[in-house]
């Protein structure tokens, strides 16, 4: 999987929901190579920021030669990214890390918050084979439903306040879905506590599960060890290079 650092033109950037932005960048080499679950490191133009920002790949268009990212504004760096307009050139380093297993016949995607961004690429790639279970605090956070609908068979929702779908968390609804469904892979991305819960339930139902971890990163290339984690085997692993996708049992104690 060759990695490149390319200057690409932003062809579109708009706000999808409050503080959530979608940026589409022309980067043909990256679009061609990227696999669902991989990420890029975006250089913030202008030289004021020392570090790049890691962002999951949310969509790829081979026809246009573009990659799209959906990200939340959480600090100064992402604020600066959100202010860039179409026509601006941005340096994109990627594709980085290892993505999800794409061999499943009937995957269930489980996402919380911005974890739904890299899962979208998977949903597109799975060409209608996947279902998605999405969780949020309230209906407003689940603006993702319309985005996912063209790519999946079913969209299941949970909200903390019950304003949309089942009241509760993704872990509330998951047992029922696994009981009824014919899923052969669960893929989770979201808060770590959520992924841990999802992993345990998938394990109970004996369905393989992959999770995508998030850690602060420096280089994104496996060199600086900012994102090292412990694994259940006792080995140290780098989220940027060995991940961000891991099998649930590699990173969570499921026993």
């Amino acid at each position: 999987m060759p990695k490149v650092a390319v200057d690409g033109e932003i062809i579109d950037q708009h706000e999808l929901a409050k503080d959530v932005w979608r940026m589409e960048v022309e980067a043909r080499e990256i679009a061609r190579e990227a696999e669902p679950g991989q990420f890029v490191q975006l250089q913030i133009p202008g030289g004021a920021f020392t570090l790049r920002r890691p962002v999951g790949i949310a969509e790829v268009s081979l026809q246009k030669g573009t990659v799209a990212f959906i990200y939340r504004v959480v600090g100064k760096g992402t604020k600066a990214l959100s202010r860039l307009t179409a026509g601006t050139v941005i340096n994109v380093l990627g594709p980085l890390g290892h993505g999800f297993s794409c061999k499943a016949k009937r995957p269930l995607l489980v996402g919380g918050g911005m974890g739904l961004s890299p899962l979208l690429f998977y949903a597109e790639h799975a060409k209608g084979k996947a279902d998605v279970l999405m969780g949020g605090r309230c209906e407003r956070e689940l603006f993702w439903q319309e985005i996912y609908k063209p790519h999946v068979q079913e969209v299941f929702c949970t909200t903390d306040d019950g304003s949309c779908g089942t009241k509760g968390f993704t872990t509330t609804l998951l047992p029922e879905l696994l009981q009824k469904g014919d899923y052969d892979l669960v893929i989770a991305c979201g808060p770590e506590i959520m992924m841990q819960g999802i992993s345990k339930i998938a394990h109970e139902y004996q369905i393989p599960c992959q999770v995508s971890l998030e850690k602060r990163m420096g280089c994104g290339l496996g060199a600086c060890l900012s994102c090292s984690i412990d694994t259940t085997s006792g080995q140290r692993r780098k989220v940027c290079k060995d991940g961000p996708v891991f099998w649930a049992e590699e990173v969570f104690d499921l026993a």
Binding site: T50, L51, G77, R216, M217, G218, C224, L225, C227, S228
Partner: peptide, 11 residues
Amino acid sequence: RITETPMGMLN
């Protein structure tokens, strides 16, 4: 283990 600072970073 890492955090960005004005024109730099701490590790």
